[in-house]
């Protein structure tokens, strides 16, 4: 698997898109720090951007890479390599190169600005960890979509739809259901609903850490009341790990049963 990972990773970091992605974060980091003049405030703004953008980029990169490397995959399938190694190697190559762009692109401006001297270092690291998780989750989801759709256009459409659903529509539906069923106790429902959306989960995870009650919203408040900050943090991280593990397991399961 490591060999495939190596080839995928180096293939990707040579590509133009990884640089564009890296430069975008670099620019974003510098501009935010320039405008905010404060590391903690910049972290909050950054969270709002990361939580929407990272899933989108993860989804698109995942689908694009899978379809573009079809020939590479076919070549590898005839070689003495495990199928799961081929797909997991490619997956970690894509997710790894994106995570590297994210961490370096945001890390460099913040470190230059004096991150290590400020008290926001833990908040900032948590933000990067969440970003990495979102990359892993959405790349895995998009790999699954691409694997089960031979048709590129269809696969691309489903992947973007998935992002749109989890990033935008889900929240809308959730809010509407809260309004419609406001007479009922909704604590458990809203907890469960949050667990089923990695984007919401990441948002709450960061807000719990930043401890900004005003931004927590209903679900965040329920989350905090129910678990407390410490347990809440741990539970949301565990949920993110599960969110990564299940699509990956499903990916290897499907890949082993597919005809090429």
């Amino acid at each position: 698997m490591l060999k495939i990972l190596k080839y995928s990773f180096f293939d990707l970091i040579r590509s133009r898109w990884s640089y564009v992605y890296f430069l975008f974060y670099l620019l974003l980091g510098f501009v935010l720090l320039f405008l905010n003049n404060d590391v903690s405030k910049a972290v909050i703004t950054l969270m709002n951007i990361i939580i929407v953008l990272v899933p989108l980029i993860g989804t698109i990169f995942g689908v694009m890479y899978y379809y573009n490397s079809k020939e590479f995959t076919e070549l590898l399938l005839a070689q003495p390599i495990r199928r799961s190694s081929i797909f997991l190697g490619q997956y970690f190559g894509v997710a790894g190169s994106q995570t590297m762009s994210l961490v370096l692109g945001l890390g460099i401006p913040f470190v230059m600005y004096g991150l290590f001297k400020s008290d926001a270092i833990f908040d900032f690291s948590l933000l990067l960890v969440t970003g990495a998780f979102l990359t892993l989750i959405f790349t895995a989801l998009s790999f699954n979509i691409a694997l089960s759709n031979e048709n590129k256009i269809k696969g691309f459409g489903y992947a973007v739809l998935l992002w749109l659903f989890l990033a935008v529509i889900y929240d809308g539906l959730f809010l509407m259901s809260l309004i419609i069923f406001k007479e009922y106790p909704l604590d458990t429902f809203s907890l469960a609903a949050t667990m089923f959306n990695p984007i919401d989960l990441s948002r709450i995870l960061i807000l719990l850490e930043l401890d900004i009650s005003a931004l927590l919203g209903y679900t965040g408040a329920v989350f905090k009341k129910f678990f407390g900050t410490q347990t809440g943090l741990i539970i949301s991280i565990v949920m993110l790990v599960i969110w990564t593990a299940i699509p990956l397991w499903w990916l290897t399961y499907k890949a082993k049963r597919k005809d090429f």
Binding site: D11, R14, S15, S69, K70, E71, F72, E74, L75, A78, Q79, P80, I81, R82, R83
Partner: peptide, 21 residues
């Protein structure tokens, strides 16, 4: 099993290779 493929040389019908290599 996948190890047995070490014993096989395979020439695919349509030569699809990663284009950027």
């Amino acid at each position: 099993n996948w190890k047995y493929r070490e014993q096989i040389d395979y020439l695919p019908q349509i030569a699809n290779f990663p284009g950027n290599l």
